[in-house]
Computed example of a mutant assay.
Amino acid sequence: MKNNTNIDNELNTVEKKINDFENNCPVQFALKTISGKWKTSIIQTIASNCPKRFGILKKDLDNIAQGTLTTVLRELENDGILMREVFPEIPPRVEYSLTDKGIRLLPILEELKKWHTTL
């Protein structure tokens, strides 16, 4: 039993070090912010014709489920990449646009594309 406890303690220490690294490394944090199947596609789609309404985004991103689109839009909004504007109209109109932080991300995404093509 004592060996298992030591192994458990060692694993907890390693996990804590990994979590500390991920939480304190700006590059890791940035990658975590934009990672996911749809995030960069949504950012680039909005950037191509800003602002965009939800229905247009859904149409532009062929295979995305409505719930997935909603979730990813909320995540990007919470991370300060997108801004959501609700207009007091009937029927309600919601538009998504890039924030300054989102706009500053675009050249980085372009560099990532270039980097990927050189592999």
Rank of each mutant, 00 (worst) to 15 (best):
residue 60 D to K: 11
residue 1 M to A: 15
residue 10 E to N: 01
residue 3 N to W: 12
residue 32 K to C: 07
residue 30 A to Y: 10
residue 12 N to G: 03
residue 40 T to I: 13
residue 62 D to P: 06
residue 47 A to G: 03
residue 15 E to I: 12
residue 115 W to E: 15
residue 71 T to D: 00
residue 64 I to H: 12
residue 83 M to S: 12
residue 34 I to W: 00
residue 28 Q to S: 09
residue 79 D to N: 14
residue 14 V to A: 05
residue 72 V to N: 14
residue 72 V to E: 01
residue 114 K to R: 14
residue 78 N to L: 06
residue 117 T to D: 11
residue 104 R to H: 13
residue 92 P to K: 12
residue 3 N to K: 14
residue 28 Q to V: 14
residue 82 L to S: 03
residue 38 W to S: 08
residue 36 G to W: 08
residue 114 K to S: 12
residue 116 H to M: 09
residue 107 P to F: 01
residue 18 I to C: 15
residue 41 S to Q: 03
residue 34 I to A: 06
residue 73 L to W: 03
residue 70 T to M: 07
residue 52 K to T: 13
residue 76 L to F: 07
residue 63 N to E: 11
residue 48 S to V: 06
residue 78 N to F: 07
residue 70 T to N: 08
residue 17 K to E: 11
residue 17 K to N: 06
residue 16 K to V: 03
residue 110 E to S: 04
residue 113 K to G: 03
residue 26 P to G: 13
residue 110 E to G: 01
residue 78 N to C: 06
residue 24 N to T: 15
residue 24 N to G: 06
residue 68 T to N: 02
residue 50 C to Q: 02
residue 108 I to A: 04
residue 37 K to S: 10
residue 17 K to Q: 09
residue 18 I to H: 03
residue 76 L to S: 05
residue 20 D to I: 07
residue 4 N to W: 01
residue 109 L to N: 09
residue 10 E to F: 00
residue 92 P to I: 14
residue 47 A to S: 15
residue 56 I to T: 13
residue 97 S to H: 02
residue 65 A to K: 13
residue 102 G to A: 09
residue 38 W to C: 05
residue 40 T to A: 00
residue 57 L to D: 04
residue 74 R to S: 04
residue 27 V to W: 08
residue 82 L to C: 05
residue 69 L to R: 13
residue 69 L to Q: 05
residue 67 G to E: 12
residue 62 D to Q: 15
residue 99 T to K: 13
residue 101 K to Q: 01
residue 66 Q to S: 12
residue 83 M to C: 05
residue 56 I to P: 04
residue 101 K to D: 05
residue 99 T to A: 09
residue 113 K to S: 03
residue 61 L to Q: 10
residue 88 P to M: 04
residue 104 R to W: 08
residue 101 K to S: 01
residue 51 P to N: 07
residue 81 I to S: 04
residue 67 G to F: 06
residue 38 W to D: 09
residue 21 F to S: 02
residue 64 I to G: 05
residue 117 T to G: 00
